[in-house]
Write a protein that binds this DNA or RNA. Structure first.
Lengths: 208, 208
DNA sequence: GACGATCCTGTACTTCAGTCCAATAGGCGT
DNA sequence: ACGCCTATTGGACTGAAGTACAGGATCGTC
């Protein structure tokens, strides 16, 4: 578990006892408060009182703290509210009155890149998606894909979707250096100058 | 991290070096093998070679080991395969060749009750299920273009076509600095991170 | 006249992308 | 055994992108 200071963000900057028990050095901060932090916390907890829109709160937090993982604490958790929060980029969602131990576990999971999501919600998500017709394939594959090795195609698709080299590296479990090596080879094979032009070719908006 | 013995289940019971590096005391077991374990492992890793149905493998593992959390290791990860695996109850999904460190992190997350799921898949799940009114899809020019001034639209289009800042400056008879200023404003208004994502929005391949 | 929005521009800085040098290892065909 | 291709990785470097600070000019509105 990170030793850095967590940040609990709520309407009036209150810090519940069990939050404090979970993270004794956590700081609290009101949404309307103009006080800012010296540094970005490793994790932000967004307390949602009943009736407050999660997406709105998450946007406000992002504007304050930048791209920080956010776990939502809800007074009255519902799948609908959870959906809205995850759609707005939350990494976890649980009950405001969860035990200190559970909060620490949630923090561990999210800090390591996982998600904390209810099982019933996950099943709903899966049910909802199973009925969606799969998206049409990008550009005729034979146009650009045929020129690349399998790994290069994976890198090309990830880059064309807007991922940075670091993100592609994480996704494919290789180093950023390897991503650059593949990208360079892809640029040369497809005769493009950079990743934006690669994206145009992959999506069929530019001829090679 | 649990000290108990993890179990890697694959077609022929092979144990890749980096799996062993991640969990030195892990055991391997083939799907067809009739050898069973004395006790249920805390976590099962299901290796999916290309072309093998995830759901089938997960069912087989459940029959063998009972209700154990399962992380799927895929040789060629795709969102479709991931969907199928999560629908069959997997708790994580990652690349067969993930680093030992990543495998340990995934184990930590899943053992504590979290999910290990790719960001693009999560977004697809959310798109499919969320009934919350979503912003209208971008792509129709009036959607992203309506948020920009006329000059910003000119810059956005030029950038989205793959022009560098210098090229846009030449084309519009302004300095590169001015192009950057407009680009920055455009990124902020459309909520994108860089020119590649701007291009995806302008060409209707990414929601804002 | 004051103000806000828009357009334009500068210096300066950090980060990322891309390229060039290098290397190892495995698989495959000859 | 050898050569080639592919995948992977490192260090080092340059240039572009993006951001943060700052500012001026024009135009429309109050």
């Amino acid at each position: 578990m990170s030793d850095k200071v967590h940040c609990f963000i709520s309407q009036k900057g209150e810090l519940l006892p069990r939050w404090q028990e979970a993270f004794p050095q956590a700081v609290a901060c009101g949404l309307e408060s103009k006080v800012s932090h010296g540094s970005t916390p490793p994790l932000a907890w967004a307390h949602l009182p009943t009736g407050v829109a999660g997406a709105q709160v998450l946007d406000a937090i992002r504007k304050r703290l930048g791209d920080v993982p956010i776990v939502v604490l809800s007074d009255q958790p519902t799948d609908e509210e959870a959906l809205s929060c995850f759609a707005a980029g939350a990494r976890g969602y649980c009950n405001t009155h969860a035990t200190a131990e559970l909060l620490r576990r949630v923090a561990d999971v999210v800090l390591q890149g996982g998600l904390w999501i209810g099982e019933s919600l996950m099943q709903r998500l899966l049910q909802g998606t199973a009925r969606i017709p799969m998206p049409a394939p990008v550009g005729a594959p034979s146009d650009w894909a045929a020129l690349l090795t399998e790994r290069e195609r994976e890198v090309a698709l990830a880059v064309a979707e807007g991922a940075s080299n670091k993100e592609v590296a994480r996704r494919l479990s290789i180093t950023e250096r390897t991503v650059k090596a593949h990208a360079g080879a892809i640029f040369e094979k497809l005769g493009v100058r950079d990743r934006l032009q690669l994206s145009l070719v992959v999506h069929g908006r530019q001829r090679r």
